[in-house]
């Protein structure tokens, strides 16, 4: 069961269709980041499609093409709405020590491109992510970076995140754990 998932690189961008949709997609991603960074996880769950697929594959250095570095079987996250909801429920207990006291997590989302539009109005969106985490009185800030490949679907006229794959830059993560969502 070995195999590789290819990173979906935004190679072919239709620049003619994009600008207005890019503003819409960017606003969605910024609102999402704000929900996560303010700890408003219920609002974040409400931005997800019921059939969301959310994956962060394990990366390992390979000779040759960078897009063959991602595992098809080994993950940091491999989630659906059930598991994402359980993670949010956990954070709402009084016993989620890794986030109590809360970390200062910050999602910086850039380089947003709408790379395709489906007949139903779903958007394929690529973006870059820099996540920083500050904790307690430690001056050291942990960070992770990567490329996101998302599908935003229109449900009842509103965009919802239906698919996300995050292609992390690091193979050895320089963080003790990931306590938020990427």
């Amino acid at each position: 069961m070995t195999g590789t998932a290819r990173a979906e690189l935004p190679a072919e961008v239709d620049l003619e269709v994009a600008p207005g949709l890019e503003t819409e997609a960017t606003r969605f991603l910024y609102r999402e980041a704000a929900a996560l960074d303010s700890g408003n996880f219920d609002a974040w769950l409400a931005m997800l499609a019921p059939d969301i697929q959310y994956q962060v594959p394990v990366r390992s250095t390979r000779y040759g093409r960078a897009d063959e570095e991602f595992s098809a079987t080994s993950f940091h996250f491999d989630e659906d709405l059930f598991s994402l909801t359980m993670r949010v429920k956990r954070l709402a207990t009084r016993f989620a020590w890794a986030e109590d006291p809360p970390s200062r997590n910050r999602h910086m989302v850039t380089n947003v491109l709408v790379t395709a539009v489906s007949a139903t109005g779903a958007l394929k969106v690529s973006s870059n992510l820099l996540l920083t985490r500050s904790r307690f009185d430690e001056s050291r800030t942990e960070s992770l970076s990567g490329a996101r490949s998302d599908v935003l679907e229109r449900i009842d006229g509103r965009l919802r995140l239906a698919r996300r794959t995050v292609f992390l830059d690091q193979t050895t993560l320089p963080v003790g754990s990931i306590t938020t969502f990427l």
Binding site: M1, T2, V58, S60, S71, A72, T73, S74, H76, T171, T172, L173, P174, V175, G176, S177
Partner: peptide, 10 residues
């Protein structure tokens, strides 16, 4: 194994 190991710094 189910793919390569997760590696991270603690």
């Amino acid at each position: 194994v189910l793919g390569p190991p997760q590696r991270w710094i603690v």
